[in-house]
Amino acid sequence: MREEEIPYKGIEGIPVIREPGSAAKVNRGSWRLVRPVHNIEKCTKCKICYIYCPDAAIDWTPDGPDINLTSCKGCMICAEECPTGAMTEEKEGA
């Protein structure tokens, strides 16, 4: 078939994701065996947990870190890196 005879179909049928950040609503909480627990009294608001969360599951607020348990996969980097022991670990479903 010559090129000009190939019917042009535009981008129809090609999957395009139009909503930026739509994965935020996907629940990854079911992956967790343990969950991080934040203790505000011990927190110095140093931001370390927030910076290092690979799934952006910690939002930064004027009160410090706010854990989003829909996105949190329970990797425990936040607890491991917290310098004051303000982020601790709890067994899921306990």
Binding site: P20, G21, A23, W31, T70, S71, I77
Partner: peptide, 12 residues
């Protein structure tokens, strides 16, 4: 952040 949770990448 211009990146959200919910991906299928490994935890950590």
């Amino acid at each position: 952040d211009y990146f959200t949770g919910g991906s299928s990448a490994c935890a950590g």
